[in-house]
């Protein structure tokens, strides 16, 4: 395996989160489109299935993927459209990870009790 440094991990994570997000997007749009069958259609049954806790953990991972992919995407824009971006790419990647954590922790504090609190 190519032993790259931060830039390679940034790239890997961007690809993996991107593929995961587009697959989630397709499932999500299909799922929501079931409202077209009306209140007596399959919509609620589908949603109840996805309200089970393993899928809700999955949804937390989707949010984490969104935040990382969005912030690293902003980093890529700065790399490509500024003259100074490449010089600071490494520190910007650590900033992306830091801000992802800063956003992620309060989200976890809000959502995890909803999943496991039995509410």
């Amino acid at each position: 395996m190519y032993r790259g440094r931060e830039g390679q991990w940034a790239y890997f994570l961007h690809r993996i989160t991107g593929v995961a997000l587009v697959l989630y997007l397709m499932l999500h749009v299909f799922d929501i489109s079931l409202v077209m069958y009306g209140p007596d259609g399959p919509f609620n049954a589908f949603l109840m299935f996805y309200h089970q806790w393993p899928f809700r953990i999955g949804l937390v991972l989707v949010i984490a993927a969104v935040v990382y992919h969005a912030l690293n995407g902003l980093r890529i824009i700065l790399l490509d459209f500024t003259t100074w971006g490449i010089r600071y790419q490494r520190v910007m990647w650590y900033t992306v990870l830091g801000v992802t954590t800063v956003i992620g922790v309060p989200v976890l504090v809000k959502i995890l009790p909803e999943i496991f609190g039995g509410a």
Binding site: P39, F43, N44, L47, R56, L59, I63, I111, E114
Partner: peptide
């Protein structure tokens, strides 16, 4: 997903919203 508990989402929520 964050402002509300996503477990409360159901047909009525989605239909009203859309």
């Amino acid at each position: 997903n964050i402002a509300i508990n996503v477990a409360t989402v159901d047909y009525n929520y989605v239909a009203t919203r859309l």
